[in-house]
Amino acid sequence: MRKLNKKIIIVIIAVAVVLILFLASATGTNRDSISGLEGVVRDASAPLKGGVTSLVGNTSAISDNFVDVDQLLEENTALKERVASLEAEVAALQDAKRENSYLKDLLNIADELADWQPVASTVVARSSKSWYNTITIKGGKDQGFSKNMPVITAEGLVGRINLVSATTAEVLLIIDQECAVSAVVQTSQTAGVVAGNGYNSDSLYMIHIPADAKISTGQTVISSGLGGIFPRGLRIGYINNVTSVQGGLMQQATVEPFVDFDRLSNVLVLTNVTQSGGDESPVVTQNHDEENREGQASGIEGEVSAR
């Protein structure tokens, strides 16, 4: 009897393990929505997480004030020099802006970001698993956030919304192994795909670069707008290493992101706004699924399912 019971327990455990593995495989990053229970857990813990994150931020801000005075003086001198050089640069850029505007019209390039409405949000938590690069931000369905909306900061592209609950949203960072962004090198317009490096690293790599493409270190990489998730022109990072892969048939570049992912506190979510005309308020498009399916089907942008 005891032996039979042991056998039954082993069978039950084996069935449970198989069922759990099925559940795990069904709850990857390609889910469209989260379950009610997850929503409750996330929404209930969000205020606590927000409070602690804010407290941690304030504490580190206070400790940052106690830096060496010499260091501050040096920094002040360097900043003054930088302001002078930037003023000269601004003058040059104003000329370039006029020229750029003319060229844009000439090339008939639409200003992609004009169609997007940025909504400010704050980071409340980070993923506790070091190989998942995600953050939780304040605001969810209540703010009109939906899956795949791009998230940026002043420095550049942060990632895209992956899961949304009533009051929070999980952002899949571009440094995550399962996030991919269709990108171009700004100067040469060389196309490729930027993906997370893994290995607990904040760097990215750009793949699918033709062997004859002229790319070099220091060049800026921006989003290409292909794939339908990220608008064109979002700054991603700069190239810091180029290597030849696949027996010299292709090139691969390591890209250092502009965004400091360890110090993210405020972000902007780009919600897609369609003007409904007249005096009506802009309508936030809740669903990007059609675009996303198109993008993901083309394998350009979205999730990296296998490598």
């Binding site: 393990v17 759990i20 593995l21 559940l23 795990a24 495989s25 709850t27 990857g28 990053t29 989260i34 229970l37 997850e38 857990v41 996330r42 813990s45 993923s127 506790s128 698993k129 998942y132 995600t134 899961l163 999980e170």
Partner: peptide
């Protein structure tokens, strides 16, 4: 299970 629900990714891996 609780941690998996909070992470929301591959639910079940932490359980096992």
């Amino acid at each position: 299970l609780v941690e998996d629900l909070m992470i929301g990714r591959y639910i079940g891996l932490s359980i096992l």
